[in-house]
């Protein structure tokens, strides 16, 4: 580990801050698509920068990257399996009646 040249950590930090400002500024345009990109697209870029340079995944053994990616893929799989029931309001032969409007209207204790 000690042989490789270190990236300039300050530079990466500066980039992260720039990206942070963009993600905060994005919603001010009030265009949903732009917000989506500035919020989540930039989160992915930030995560990539941190994982690659701060966690040193760029010089770590490849199987570690595969391991972590596999975990993320499992979560996508979970999402794909659960979303048809949890996320939808209706499906094949079932629907969720609108109880929620009432529940939201009643004050919570």
């Amino acid at each position: 580990m000690s042989e490789h040249a270190h990236p300039n950590y300050f530079k990466i930090w500066a980039w992260l801050l720039v990206l942070l400002s963009i993600s905060v500024a994005g919603p001010m345009l009030e265009i949903p698509v732009v917000t989506l990109i500035t919020a989540f697209g930039i989160a992915i870029v930030k995560a990539y920068l941190v994982a690659r340079n701060f966690m040193h995944l760029n010089v770590e053994k490849k199987y570690v990257v595969y391991l972590l990616t596999t975990m993320v893929v499992f979560m996508l799989l979970f999402f794909a399996g659960a979303a048809p029931d949890v996320m939808n309001q209706e499906g094949d032969q079932w629907y969720k009646p609108k109880v929620e409007a009432e529940a939201a209207a009643t004050p919570h204790h």
Partner: peptide, 11 residues
Amino acid sequence: FGGLLASYIMF
């Protein structure tokens, strides 16, 4: 965290 956030995103 993945399980928690996946649930959040679905809702």
